[in-house]
Nucleic acid binder design. Structure first.
Lengths: 143, 143
DNA sequence: GTACATATTCAAGTTAACTTGAGGTCAAGG
DNA sequence: CCTTGACCTCAAGTTAACTTGAATATGTAC
């Protein structure tokens, strides 16, 4: 199997053609060869898309992934770029995990304590985490 | 300090007036008293907004928060409806916590990968976590 | 009384990450 | 030759959670 058409790449990666075209449009995937107008992908493309999705699932935005793929200047190895971004993401994940725990406690408390109005809610301002910057958005899993 | 104008509430909570009006518009915050057209908030409003933001930081959508808040206000203390919702949210939080753990593992795995070019990346598709529903969305931190 | 900050409403714009739809091309199969 | 299916482009739509802007009103300070 020498080349893949977009449909084949979509099947192999689980990513819809429209999304693949979109990744190309925003400059994350390189322009593939064309044969009579159709995109003709090298098999490497599968791996590239896999890595892209991996990063996305780990909470990176497409902009971050773009930076990861070809930002930071040419000579910096991918691993260095990845590490810098990944460490930041790990910190963000810790913040999120913390929020989740706090919310759990609050909900459990709410189930127990029986406050009837929100004003009586036992959450104290001290329980409320600071706004610690953005968290990645992602679409629903494909239908 | 008896009442707060919207700007004061904004200052106290860190939430911009436009967002506060929005919350009111979608029915999360109750309509405050008006004095010559201006919103005149009870100091309780600060706590209400704090709780709202707390829930939001933990990954609740505004729609869910609306339901939760109205659950708090229902005549019957801790209505069955509220309990059911809260338990559902607890389960969702568990799922989210789980996902965060998987993302952590994925990131740590990625940190170990020493690839220089994407083509050399040793990440395999098996390392890629499954898509298990949406990731919590939140707006960028206010400018 | 005039300037100024702050308030009001309403409509339209923003962002991310795509999807959907209209309208058209192209090679292969019957 | 005609249909079918996969492909193409480009524009517009989707969703959540707001923001921004325009036009207008109001209370306070000087």
């Amino acid at each position: 199997m020498r080349h893949l058409l977009i449909g084949e790449l979509a099947r192999r990666t689980g990513i819809r053609p429209s999304a693949l075209r979109y990744y190309e449009e925003v400059g994350i995937l390189p322009l593939p060869a064309r044969v009579s107008g159709r995109r003709c992908y090298n098999p490497d493309a599968i791996h590239r898309v896999d890595v892209l999705r991996f990063a996305q699932q780990a909470g990176f935005t497409l902009q971050e992934i773009k930076t990861l793929f070809h930002g930071f200047g040419v000579q910096t190895p991918l691993s260095a770029r990845w590490k810098s971004l990944a460490r930041g993401k790990l910190r963000e994940l810790d913040v999120l995990a913390n929020r989740v725990q706090r919310m759990r406690r609050a909900l459990e408390l709410g189930l127990k304590c029986g406050c009837v109005r929100i004003e009586d809610c036992s959450l104290s301002p001290a329980d409320i985490p600071e706004t610690n910057g953005p968290f990645p958005r992602s679409r629903r899993a494909r239908s």
